[in-house]
Design a binder for these strands. Structure first.
Lengths: 344, 344
DNA sequence: CACGCTCTTGCAAGCGCTTGCATCGATGAT
DNA sequence: ATCATCGATGCAAGCGCTTGCAAGAGCGTG
């Protein structure tokens, strides 16, 4: 009871009456082991409750059976879902997941300086975290496969959605409802290097909105592009700013549901009705979007994670298949927060 | 540029003109190294960009610099916050976090059978995951410190809140508002072994509600105890069931905000106003509780995580200080979802 | 019956770091 | 000047597993 030393390969070997080398091969399913022998070894291992020492194995092979996952936030809906998806496929494949939560943490510098993943992981997955040039180089210097979700890093595979297309579809929806004064809540400046997602959604917004203005022969309202930092509080503030504008939007497109939630709240507090007075459209299809009747662009978050996980596995098994960036589909989900423009 | 072999201890030793042993000691800040030598070694290491091989170090010392964190869900608010808190303090301490997301996953059995953390971690943290007897034994068999949040496992340290006290406070609030027909939304049966949290909140509910009934000289309504599985959808259903009761509650206490959200939604759909027709009280102080004007019991989730992280660190540095379970405080946060009973 | 194959198995040299013990000066005491 | 001491270093034996290579066994063939 208690301090019993864990069994080692040799113990199994002795019990099975073979050499350690054979045990190693037998247990890993390598060829070149007679069936009878393998059976005996497996039985012996089971009897002793033998479990390999990852450290020793890793030292000998150079592989760790672990991948590092770097995220900006674990506690935001989008990321936690992503992680959940990734984790599932990795665990199924018997590989462990080392989590690093960077965010706007001051520890980020220290992380990249120390690079605790070095020699600790067989691959790295970066979730929608914009990397600086240096950071990317450091990661690539790890000399293991790199895959990213939501950002495209030269040197790594990436998975994502068609942000631009989805955002255009969203905007078109508002336009079809008759809205022409459409505002946008996205990332606050400065947009971190490489953070393509907010940029693309913004570009799409601008494209559609500016076209609208051109048709109507008027100038786009610059104040319509606001930043909400992808948080509820940020969305709240952004909406506040929009309400302060001389020219008020009749519809708002938020680049994330969380920001849309914030906007809803500001609107409610201001005594404005949604969607009668202003339509609000989000992006994500957050769990609570349904609850709040928020129309939004649904993106298949868990699938993104699973897909990334599978890609990772493929890379681990040496697959050097140059995959072009994987793009998953999105879908406009209409609920109660968007409605046709009412006569002013 | 590419395939350069990572440097090893020997390389540093050569550059610094000392032995590998000295480098090892110098770099780890062990005593018995002359200051001048240490400086030289550190410089050499820096120049070569040397980074220790965790595998080798781990093989030699038996320590891994990693802790395993086991959670039932990563993508639920409470857990993601917890993880975030834990991760921060661990990363600050330079130790890595191996994440295992079990949930009601069928892979759970496989996880405990294979026990991928074995020999991979220096400690294990279990987040509000009720363990079966066997599972707990397996974890304890890992022979590393075990700490838990939200559940008390014999053999491990635990951190949590006073669920019973907090729930009683919540219930009292409803009572003070004049409510006497109070329903509860909690865990659905069967409550997993060891999952004390829902049990305690239920017990508190029952205690207060039954006392009320006794005062009024009537039987408690058994149908008032519903299960919502701690999800929005579950809460929705539970509220639906409550509305179907002949005797309808005037207030509902949900053991989690997510379930309360679901309840809100069912109420809204049923055309009932909150809080005029029914008061709703949650538990957690979810990020969106504010947005939804939900009165709730706030628990310091990130602090719980940080606290657990620190406890873990203490245990890792050999601290055998028998800490009694750490209990953090909670606070009733009143918003718009609870109001005095209106005449029926 | 000898020879050459193929299939199993074992040997032993690592993988890169840690650590108990021995060594070697330098320093202080006698 | 001599010897005990103590701090700074180096030696070398692991830690537990993997793997190239060699050796042995069993077989079919000429």
């Amino acid at each position: 009871m208690g301090q019993e030393m864990p069994e080692k390969l040799d113990d199994v070997a002795r019990l099975a009456g073979v050499s350690a080398a054979t045990v190693s091969r037998a247990l890993r399913g390598l060829p070149g082991v007679a069936d009878r022998t393998r059976t005996r070894v497996v039985a012996a291992a089971a009897e002793l409750g033998y479990a390999i020492s990852p450290a020793a194995s890793s030292l000998a092979t150079g592989r760790t059976g672990t991948v590092g996952v770097i995220v900006p936030y674990v506690d935001r809906w989008y990321f936690s879902r992503l992680i959940s998806g990734v984790e599932r496929v990795l665990r199924d494949a018997g590989i462990s997941l080392l989590l690093y939560n960077l965010g706007d943490d001051p520890g980020r510098g220290r992380f990249f300086a120390g690079l605790p993943l070095r020699r600790r992981v067989d691959a790295v997955l970066v979730l929608s975290l914009p990397l600086t040039e240096v950071e990317r180089e450091l990661l690539l210097g790890l000399d293991v496969p790199l895959v990213t979700i939501g950002t495209e890093e030269p040197g790594g595979d990436s998975i994502g959605i068609d942000d631009h297309g989805a955002a255009v579809t969203a905007m078109r929806h508002l336009v079809q409802l008759g809205h022409r004064e459409i505002a946008f809540i996205g990332e606050s400046d400065p947009i971190p290097l490489g953070f393509t997602t907010p940029l693309r959604r913004l570009a799409a917004y601008r494209e559609v909105y500016h076209a609208l203005c051109r048709e109507d022969g008027r100038e786009p309202e610059a104040g319509f592009e606001t930043g909400g930092g992808f948080t509820v509080a940020g969305g709240e503030r952004a909406m506040g700013a929009l309400l302060g504008l001389p020219r008020r939007p009749t519809a708002v497109f938020a680049a994330s549901d969380e920001m849309a939630f914030g906007a809803l709240r500001t609107l409610r507090r201001a005594g404005l009705r949604v969607p009668e007075d202003v339509s609000v459209l989000g992006f994500d299809n957050h769990d609570l979007a349904d609850l709040l009747e928020l129309s939004t662009v649904a993106q298949p978050v868990p699938e993104l994670g699973e897909r990334a996980g599978r890609l990772l596995l493929a890379r681990l098994s040496g697959g050097k298949i140059a995959t072009s960036p994987s793009i998953l589909g999105t879908q406009l989900v209409l609920r109660g927060s968007t409605a046709p423009m009412t006569g002013r």
